[in-house]
Design a binder for these strands. Structure first.
Length: 471
RNA sequence: GGCGACAUAGCCAAGUGGUAAGGCAGAGGACUGCAAAUCCUCCACUCCCCGGUUCAAAUCCGGGUGUCGCCUCCA
């Protein structure tokens, strides 16, 4: 498949370095709060990429996503909550898994934590020091940016340009303003670990370099994250990793666009900040996932109530189709009747075409918007065919529903199952209504339907009998 | 100041040289006891503007306008 590589600014054919095995590293959350929809986008997106690589090529994907469990934000939040940093981390790692599971994000192969890899981090910093790429000052250790000639190759910046625009305060202890911390000396009251430079804690960027190397080796296939991580985070990761190993750190760099709110960047200071946990009070997790995948991942998307409504309604259309299939299956003949064979055969052909369209879209830099369009076309054709046939065969129903779920599954969508059967009370009411309809007692029939509606049961009368939908 | 992205219908969104996908919303119709679901029809003579290249441009080139992002913790 083709993937847009930030490094080369081009779509390139992706083939893993090691045959049949893909090594992916995706930057995970800092666990100081519930994650927000901005975080959710890369999680959902790169989970989808992983699913697709597994589905289409049968690759074994080793997927690493870290938890940043020590940094300024962690320390400040823990202080505010009156708990330790590790308690804070534990709490929000748990919450991460709750939301992630809801969003259909598969667990990574490994979810390493920075604080559990201090040894590896120190070893990496030492290696950089030995090679003359790092220097210690008063217990801090900095990366010597000027020592890495390729600095800026990912973000396509020149070091000089960055410096001229630098808004950071000049730290006179640093050799160059662009030098960044690999290790930070302990400040009073902060968690700290022993190191050759005294007590302290790792800088932010170094953890990813160290953990990626530990679990995936010196060169990985795909490294991904949000667009804002291109600089400085990923640029710095490259500098650290490649200065240490002399090998390319990642072959493909993938970055997703941002989520805006009213066309403005979502940020805490602007107060337009939405956690996934908040949104699920109003919309299913799946609506969020569907919403994220309905645009191309590199484009910015807006978030609003209206757009979530649109996403929900679109998602409903697919589920309605699946419901219909399920309902028809209940009394379906094994094979199509005479005169219906042709229609079903034609549908089979169309299904095949839509699957090809789906794959084609995904092959082109993970164009999930186009892939979803193919699924909608499929839904329409299924609806048309099933309405044209008096009694669709179990065979075609199985096929159509199965494919919709199969391809939906690649996107992590459409897997919700309606539990079958209703309790006796409901069944009795449905039967009463059926009798009332037979008696042409519409008033009673409608009354019962309304009563069931209040209980969260929707009835639809179809040519194949009454359809019971639980909300 | 430097670097970059984007601009397609009421809304969302694909398409990147061959004559505008798909979804949501809306209108009309079919079906139905009524609904719901579903289907059919309609809904961008045109893709921010102006030039240029070409037989042919939403798509390529130049210029302009607008919006946003990065250069500082940030997905």
């Amino acid at each position: 498949m083709k993937l847009f590589n930030t490094l080369t600014k081009q779509k390139e054919e992706f083939v893993p370095l090691e045959e049949g095995h893909v090594k992916m590293y995706s930057c995970g959350p800092t666990v100081y709060n519930y994650f927000h929809i901005g975080n959710a986008r890369p999680f959902i997106l790169f989970d989808t990429l992983r699913r697709y690589l597994e589905y289409r090529y049968g690759y074994e994907v080793t997927f690493v996503q870290n938890f940043t469990d020590i940094d300024d934000k962690m320390i400040n939040r823990a202080k505010k909550d009156g708990i330790t940093v590790s308690e804070l981390a534990e709490q929000y790692i748990r919450e991460y898994f709750t939301d992630a599971a809801g969003l259909g994000i598969k667990e990574a192969t490994v979810h390493p934590k920075a604080t559990e890899h201090i040894d590896g981090i120190i070893a990496l910093i030492r290696r950089l020091e030995e090679k003359g790429h790092a220097y210690a000052v008063d217990g801090d250790v900095y990366f010597d940016t000027r020592s890495f000639s390729q600095y800026g190759k990912l973000s396509h910046h020149k070091l000089e340009d960055l410096e001229s625009g630098a808004r950071i305060e000049i730290d006179t202890r640093k050799k160059d303003p662009m030098d960044f911390a690999l290790w930070k000396a302990q400040k009073p009251g902060e968690p700290a670990w022993d190191s050759p430079w005294g007590k302290g804690r790792p800088g932010w960027h170094i953890e990813c370099s160290a953990m990626a190397q530990k679990y995936l080796g010196e060169t990985i296939d795909i490294h991904s994250g949000g667009q804002d991580l291109v600089f400085p985070h990923h640029e710095n990761e490259i500098a650290q990793s490649e200065a240490a190993t002399g090998k390319p750190f990642a072959r493909f760099w993938l970055h997703n666009g941002f989520i805006n709110v009213n066309d403005e960047k979502m940020s805490k200071s602007a107060g337009n900040f939405f956690t996934v946990r908040d949104i699920v009070k109003q919309y299913d997790y799946e609506v969020i996932r569907f919403f994220m995948l309905s645009a191309h991942y590199r484009n910015p998307i807006n978030f609003s109530h209206e757009l979530m409504d649109q996403a929900r309604n679109g998602l409903d259309r697919v589920y309605k189709c699946l419901e219909n299939i399920q309902h028809l299956k209940e009394n379906a003949p094994d094979v199509a009747g005479p005169g219906e064979v042709q229609t079903e055969k034609a549908l089979e052909e169309k299904l095949k075409k839509f699957k090809e369209k789906f794959i084609e879209a995904m092959e082109d830099d993970l164009n999930t918007a186009d892939a979803i369009a193919a699924l909608f076309s499929m839904v329409r054709e299924i609806n048309i065919s099933l309405a044209a046939v008096a009694h669709p065969s179990a065979n075609i129903l199985e096929h159509a529903g199965g494919l919709l779920k199969e391809l939906g599954g690649v996107l992590g969508l459409f897997q919700k199952e309606q539990e079958a059967g209703v309790d006796n009370e409901i069944e009795e009411l449905v039967n009463q209504r059926q009798q009332a309809r037979k008696d042409r007692n519409w008033k009673l029939a409608d009354e019962i339907r309304d009563r069931l509606k209040e209980k969260g049961i929707t009835l639809e009368d179809t040519p194949q009998g009454v359809k019971i939908i639980k909300n």
